[in-house]
Amino acid sequence: HAATELTPEQAAALKPYDRIVITGRFNAIGDAVSAVSRRADEEGAASFYVVDTSEFGNSGNWRVVADVYKA
């Protein structure tokens, strides 16, 4: 099962156990969220919340930071 994305309210009520950072070329924010979901799932997380997204220069590469939560 894939890790689910939390709302800001849900994330605020929970304590993350880790923070992950992924970088890559994403065509849309949805693609980045899917990549975070896969990584969170690999780490055994039940859910995640994207904290920050930023573009690296003009290369089209993105850096996505997310907190991950157990259950």
Rank of each mutant, 00 (worst) to 15 (best):
G57D: 13
D41W: 15
S59L: 10
N27D: 12
V68S: 00
R39F: 09
A66R: 00
T7D: 06
N61K: 10
A35M: 08
A66V: 13
F48M: 01
A46W: 12
E55R: 09
G44P: 02
D31A: 07
I22G: 00
I20V: 07
F26Y: 07
L6R: 01
R63A: 07
H1N: 08
A32W: 10
V65D: 01
Y69I: 03
S59D: 14
G24H: 02
S54R: 12
N58T: 13
V21M: 07
L14C: 12
Y49W: 07
D18H: 11
A32Q: 03
A11I: 03
L6F: 03
D67N: 10
A46M: 11
G57S: 09
R19H: 03
F26Q: 01
V36W: 00
S54P: 03
S37V: 08
R19T: 07
K70C: 13
R25Y: 13
G30C: 12
E42Y: 10
D52Q: 12
P16Q: 03
N61W: 15
V33K: 12
R19G: 00
P16L: 00
F56Y: 13
F56A: 08
V64A: 01
G44M: 05
V65W: 04
G30N: 10
A13D: 10
V33G: 03
A11C: 06
I20M: 05
V64E: 02
I22C: 06
A71P: 12
Y49T: 03
T4K: 14
E55V: 11
L14I: 08
T23R: 06
A13Q: 13
E43N: 08
V51H: 03
S34D: 14
F48P: 02
A71M: 12
H1Y: 08
T53W: 15
Y17T: 04
S54H: 14
D52K: 07
I29E: 07
V64R: 00
G57I: 06
N61H: 12
N27Q: 11
F56D: 14
D52A: 13
F48I: 02
W62C: 07
R63H: 08
T23Y: 14
A35F: 05
K70Y: 12
T7P: 04
A13P: 07
V65I: 13
V51Q: 03
A40D: 02
A12C: 12
N27V: 10
W62Y: 09
V50Y: 01
E43M: 15
L14S: 09
S34F: 07
V33S: 03
K15F: 09
A3Y: 03
R38K: 13
Y49C: 08
V36R: 01
S37M: 11
I29W: 14
A13L: 14
D31M: 07
T7Y: 04
K15A: 09
W62T: 05
G24S: 02
V64I: 14
N61D: 13
S59W: 06
P8E: 12
A3I: 11
T7A: 07
W62Q: 04
N58R: 09
S34H: 14
S47A: 14
G24D: 03
V64N: 01
V65M: 05
V21E: 07
A32D: 02
G57K: 07
D67Q: 05
N27M: 12
T7F: 06
Y69N: 01
A40F: 02
R19S: 04
A32P: 02
A45P: 02
G24E: 02
A46Y: 11
S34L: 14
D67S: 03
G44S: 05
Y69H: 02
A66W: 03
V33C: 07
K70Q: 09
E9N: 08
G44W: 05
A66L: 07
A46T: 14
Q10E: 11
E9P: 05
S59C: 08
A45C: 11
A11R: 04
S47I: 04
V33L: 14
V65R: 03
E55H: 10
I22W: 00
V64M: 03
D67A: 05
Q10G: 05
V21T: 09
I29K: 10
V65G: 00
S37A: 15
V36C: 07
A12Q: 10
R25I: 11
P8H: 12
S37P: 03
G57Y: 06
T7C: 08
V51Y: 04
A66N: 00
G60R: 04
R39T: 06
G44E: 04
D67Y: 13
N58V: 11
A11Y: 04
V51N: 02
E9C: 13
F48S: 01
G60S: 05
G24R: 01
Q10F: 04
V33I: 15
W62F: 11
S37T: 07
G44F: 04
V50K: 00
N61F: 15
A13G: 12
G60L: 06
R39H: 06
A35D: 03
A12S: 10
R38D: 05
T7L: 07
Q10W: 06
D18W: 09
N27E: 12
A11M: 04
A46I: 10
A40Q: 02
A32V: 12
A12D: 07
A46G: 12
E43Q: 12
A66F: 15
F26T: 01
T23A: 06
